[in-house]
Design a binder for these strands. Structure first.
Lengths: 245, 245, 245, 245
DNA sequence: TATGAATGAGGATTCATTCAT
DNA sequence: GATGAATGAATCCTCATTCAT
C-alpha cells in the first residue's frame, strides 16, 4: 500500500464512535440524533469494509468497492476515515476488541461457576480455549490480526489516536499476563516464570500454530496426513504442561 | 500483485536449473555450454530479484527493476520465469534450501563431534539453535518464508513443477521429524509423541515467536519492557522442556 | 478548478458590502446591525481566504481550509460567495483597491508637498514608484493581479456585478491616464501621446517587467548575473525618458 | 498540478530526439529505423499534447486525452515522458525553439539583404517585429511561454536535462543582447546601456504588453476604445526611441 | 441564517505481461 | 534466444458544490 502520510482529517466520527464504546458501559448518555446517525454510518462503513476486505483481501479491495457496498459516495468514506489504512485499522480494532471480549467472557464464566479450581492455570487454559474458539468463529478477524502481526510498523510514526487499535491488542495480552501472575500466586503455575515473557511467548506460539493451521493445513495434510485438530491439541498440551508446576 | 493467471511458458530453464541442483551431487553429468549459460542466467536473475525485492519489498519491486539489476531485458525474465510470482517462489526455494542446509550442517557437526550425547533431543536443540541462527543471519530469507507462511494457497492449483519449492520446506521439517523419532528411540525424547504432529507444532510455534520478535518487538518492548532475547529463550525452554522425557 | 457554471445565488451580502464601500465616504447612512454583521462576515471570509490562498496557492487552497480559517461552516461561504472563483475575485478587488489607494495616496502626497514641480510627469514618476512599492509591500496582491492578468476571460459572460472587481483595476489605470493628460497640458509630457494608449502600454510593460523579476529572477541572475534592481531601474528609465518632452 | 518529484525514467527517447536536433545540422548521421520510429513517436506525442493542451489548457488536459489523441496507450506516454510536466516542457522547448528560429531567420534576412543599414538598431527592430509576428502566428506557443513566464520555479531543483528547455529561451534573449552590443559598437544604439539589463527589460516589457493584448484586450477596448495595434505600436515606439542614440 | 454531511467525477501514475522484431 | 516498446486496467484520494436540517 505504501501510504506514507495520512492527512489530519475525518476523525471526529471515529472519536464519537470510540467514545461511544467507552461510554456504552459507564454512562448511557443520550446521543443526539445527529451523533447517532454518524455513529451508525461509521459502523456501517466498517461493516461494508469487512465484507469487501474479508472476501477480496486488503490489497485487492478498493475503496470504490467499499463505497458501493456501503451504498455511499466514495468521498463519504473519507469523511469517516482518513485513509484506506485507517479503515483497516478500525477493523483491526474490532478484531482485537472481539478477541479480548471473548477472553473476558470466558474468564467471567469460570468466576461465576462453582468450579472448585478457579486458579490461574485454569484461567490460562480458559483463555487458550477461548482463543481457539475465536479462531474458529472469527476466521476473518483472526486473519486481520494475523495480517497485522506480519506488518512491520513503527511505534513512533503512529499518531496517538492510532495507538488505540494497538492498545486493544495489548490489553488482550495483559489478560494472559494477569492469569499467569494469579497462577504464580495461587501455586497453579510455575513461579520461576516472568509473566510478561511467558505471555508474549505463548501469544507468538499460538499465533504461529494457528497461522500454520489456517494457511498451510492442506499442505501439511497432504504430505504428512495430519489434522488441524492434532496440531492445536499438541500446542495446547505444550503450553499447559509447561505452565503447570 | 493481482496475477490471476500465469501462462504456461518459460519453464524449461527452471527445470534445467532444478535438475542441476539434484544432479549436482548424484551424477556429474556433462552440461552443454548452452545449458550452463542458461543455468547461470537463471541464477543471476534470482540474485537480482533478491537484491531488489529484499530491499524494496515484494510489492514495491518491479520487474523493470529486476531486469535492470540483472542487466537483462525485461522480456528475458519471462523466458526464465512465468511470472513475478514464480520468480518469487524461486527465492523462496532458495530460502528453504538455505534453511535445510543450515539444519543439515548443524546436525552433521554433532555427528562429527566427539560429544557424548548425540541423541535426538540434542539434535532437536541443535536444529532449534540453527533456526535461530538462520533467523539472525538471513533475515531476508526468513522474511520470505514468513511471507509464504501467510500466503494462503491451494495445493490443487499448484502446478507440479511449482511444488518443488514447497517440498524443499517439507524436507526441512522432515529433518525435525527424524530427530524426534530418533530421540524417541534413543530415549532422549518423550515417546508418547507423534513426531509429525510435534514437528509441525514446533515449527508453527517457532515461526510465530520469531515473527513476533521480528515485527512487533518495538511494541512489546514499549509496553512491557521485554527483549527479543527473553522471548526466544523462553520459547526454547518451552519446547525443550516439553520434548525431554 | 473546473467550475463551469456558477449558480445565481448569494450575492446579496456582497452587494451590501460593496455598497458599504461606496457609501462609506459619501453617505454615513445608518446600517442595521444585521447588515453590519453581514458585512463583517463578508470581510472575515475574504481575510481567511487571503490567508489560505496566499500561503497555499489558489489551486491548493480548498474551501474547507478557508471555512476552517474563517471558523465558519463551509456552506456559509457559499452564502456570501457564489463560488471559489468569486471569492478569489473579491481578493482581486482588494488588490486593485489597494493598488489604486497606493497611487492616490502617493499623488496626494505630492499635491500636499511644497515641491516646485507638481506636473504630470512628476505624477507619473510618483505612480511608477508607488507601483514598485506596492510590488514590494504586497507581493501577494501583486501576484493576484498577475494571476488575473494571465486569465483570459470574456467581458460578455461576466455578470454585471462581477465587473466591479474589474473596474477597480480600470480605475487604477485611469489615474495614470489622468497624469499623462495633465502632463500633456502642463508641458511636462510629450503632447503627441494618446494618454490611454500610453497608460495601458506602460501598464503592460510594468507588469511584464515585474513578473519577470518576481518569477524568473533566479534564472536571469544565474545566466547573466543581473539583479532585480537593475531591471527595475532600467524599466523606470525607459518609461520616464519616453514620457519626457 | 503539484508534482514534487518525477522519477528517473523515459528519457532515452527525448535524448534521442534532442540529439537529433543537434546532429541535424552537423552530421546527417543515419538513424536506425528503431531510433527513427522512436523519434517519430516522440514528436507525435508532443503533437498530440499540443493539440489537447492548447485547446483545453494545461490543467484541464488529461493524459488520457493526450493518449487518445496520439492513439497510444496511456502507459506509452510515460515511456517517452517522465510526467505530464515534462511533456509540457517539451512543448515549451518547441515554443522557444520556434521563437529563436524566427529571430534568426529575420536577422539573416537583413544580413542577406542589400539594405544600407544593417546596424544593431535595425537588428533590434527586426527582432521586435519578428516577436510580433511570432505572437500572431503562434498564439499557442506564445501562450506556453507566457504560462512558463508566470511559473515560479527553482533552478536548483531542475535536473540538468530539464535545463535544455530553459536554455533555449535564454538563447533567444541572447540574440537580443548581441544586437544591442552590435548597435553600441556601430553607433546605432546608445552606448550607456548594459546590453543584458536592457535586453531582459525589453523582454519583460514586451511579454507584458503582449500578455495584456492577448488576455485583456476586450476589456481595454470596452473601457477605453483602444486597439491591440495601438498598444503594440506604442510599445514598439517606446523601445526603439529609447535604444536610438 | 448557518451548517457540514454527502457526493462522485476526475486524474496522474504504475506495472505485470505480451509480442513483434 | 533476447529484447524492450507498448499496453490499459487499476487505484487512492481531493474538492467544489449542494441541500436537508
Amino acid at each position: 500500500m505504501t501510504p506514507k502520510k495520512e492527512a489530519q482529517k475525518g476523525i471526529d466520527a471515529k472519536e464519537v464512535a470510540l467514545q461511544e464504546q467507552k461510554t456504552k458501559v459507564t454512562s448511557p448518555k443520550e446521543k443526539s440524533p445527529k451523533e447517532k446517525r454518524k455513529q451508525k454510518r461509521y459502523e456501517a462503513i466498517i461493516d461494508a469494509a469487512e465484507k469487501v476486505i474479508f472476501s477480496k483481501g486488503l490489497e485487492d479491495a478498493s475503496m470504490d468497492m467499499v463505497a458501493k457496498e456501503a451504498q455511499l459516495g466514495k468521498g463519504t468514506l473519507y469523511l469517516y476515515f482518513k485513509s484506506k489504512n485507517e479503515l483497516y485499522r478500525a477493523i483491526l480494532y474490532r478484531a482485537f476488541l472481539s478477541l479480548r471480549k471473548k477472553f473476558k467472557v470466558a474468564l467471567q464464566a469460570i468466576d461465576a461457576s462453582t468450579a472448585p479450581e478457579k486458579n490461574g492455570l485454569e484461567g490460562l487454559k480458559t483463555i487458550l480455549e477461548a482463543y481457539l474458539e475465536f479462531y474458529h468463529e472469527h476466521q476473518d478477524y483472526f486473519n486481520a490480526i494475523l495480517y497485522f502481526q506480519n506488518d512491520l510498523f513503527d511505534l513512533d510514526t503512529l499518531a496517538a489516536n492510532e495507538k488505540i487499535y494497538l492498545e486493544e491488542g495489548i490489553a488482550a495480552i495483559e489478560l494472559v499476563i494477569e492469569q499467569i501472575e494469579k497462577g504464580k500466586k495461587d501455586g497453579s503455575v510455575r513461579d520461576d516464570l516472568d509473566a510478561g515473557v511467558a505471555a508474549y511467548t505463548f501469544w507468538g506460539q499460538t499465533m504461529g500454530v494457528l497461522q500454520l493451521v489456517q494457511k498451510k493445513m492442506t499442505i501439511v495434510a497432504h504430505y504428512h496426513q495430519l489434522t488441524a485438530e492434532q496440531l492445536i491439541r499438541q500446542h495446547f498440551e505444550v503450553i499447559v504442561s509447561f505452565l503447570a508446576k
